[in-house]
Design a protein around this nucleic acid. Structure first.
Lengths: 222, 222
DNA sequence: CCTCACGTGTCATCGAAATGTCATCGTCGC
DNA sequence: GCGACGATGACATTTCGATGACACGTGAGG
């Protein structure tokens, strides 16, 4: 799960990013609409957190424009109390949410996670593949009923793999969805993470390497 | 994102193309099915906008034919109100959409973007030829239902052959599509790969050599 | 403030699998 | 039967994933 945070106040941006990261999300951030627009163009995000007022304009207007083009990524707006009134403008449509400043980072995190989940349009909160169960809400993984302790990255990678069950997922896909833009696409982080995941799953064949293409989950009946 | 617009009315074609370009899409256009077919052959598009009636035929028929070959690019049809009735023919299947003339360009743009996105999320296509099934998402190939383990090159070559089913494909074509530019066009890599592919398919006659021309898939009516 | 545990990323190495090269053989069309 | 071209098997090379060791940063707790 990858999130973009757009907020001009640097302290707040850092705090929010840190909070989201601790929930196993990959976070990029921007300080204004122009930078955000660029990031949105280059990467794909599961959710965007927009401060309402930014140095180069009102983010609601920006989002509304993008929506007309068919853009559908869920957005959470951060509003100052005095701008609260015009929330009825309807920007909470399209599965969006808002939060009034000041707010608890934990609260924001919960909402962002909920938005990400909702984006999967009816995607069940507990993903399953073979004897693996991944509870997106509790952030728990069980294999054959046994609870495993996965790290944030491992969880995130497994979640993505399950959501694309049986399909081949390239390293690039994984880097784009589970790491933020600071990640080096040339390194073998993905390999290493997969290896650690395999070890913890205690069933290495489950995550199958497709030479030159990436990885895919396979039922081990083969 | 790259889109092909097929429309015989030049004014409309220009208007539509301009609208789509303003949404940051790369747009090519054609005035009839023949030209469109050529463009589709040469390039790959994320979406195609087809006028329903074209000087050289009904585009629905064309699309249906291509679909049978496993072609899966999403299509949006532009229909005149009086042909609307037969939309129930079912051409909106396979992730397709239609729009009744006259329409707002903004509306069209939104739908095209939505189709492009959906294409990304939807299941990747399964190509078929005779008793050979090639699942591009899982990177699996089955013959007569039996799962085969092909290498990346073999897969890529087979994919290309199926996408050009029954057509003669020259070695040069194959080198250009399945190898990177470092490949030596004088070597016999292609021959060797074809040989390995034949062996794994356990039905050598399927990939038929056309002396001096290249290779083609043939149904073994023998 | 120090230390320790943990998450995460980097690197070097190893070995298997994939790919390419080459020499030789077979066969198709004239 | 001849010659060109494709088929084939053996062998060489390259590529890529797996793996273990290690490095760095951070946060909790003493």
């Amino acid at each position: 799960m990858r999130v973009l945070v757009v907020e001009d106040d640097e302290d707040l941006r850092i705090a929010v990013s840190a909070g989201l990261r601790s929930a196993a999300l990959a976070v990029d951030s921007a300080g204004d609409i122009a930078t955000a627009d660029e990031a949105l163009f280059v990467n794909s995000y599961d959710c965007v957190v927009f401060d309402r007022m930014l140095p180069d304009g009102d983010s609601v207007g920006y989002v509304r424009t993008r929506r007309r083009e068919g853009w559908a990524v869920p957005v959470l707006f951060l509003t100052a109390r005095d701008t609260l009134a015009d929330r009825v403008e309807g920007f909470e449509h399209g599965g969006d949410d808002y939060l009034v400043k000041p707010f608890a980072v934990a609260e924001l995190t919960a909402r962002v996670l909920s938005l990400c989940r909702r984006a999967g349009t009816g995607r069940p909160p507990v993903l399953r593949y073979d004897d693996v169960e991944l509870d997106t809400g509790r952030r728990e993984v069980r294999r054959a009923g046994v609870l495993l302790t996965l790290t944030a990255k491992e969880f995130s990678v497994l979640e993505y793999l399950i959501s694309r069950a049986e399909q081949v997922v390239s390293r690039t896909d994984l880097i784009e969805h589970c790491w933020d833009s600071a990640a080096d696409p040339m390194s073998n982080v993905v390999d290493v993470t997969i290896k650690r995941l395999r070890t913890k799953l205690r069933r290495p064949e489950l995550v199958h390497a497709v030479r030159g293409q990436g990885y895919r989950l396979v039922r081990t009946a083969e």
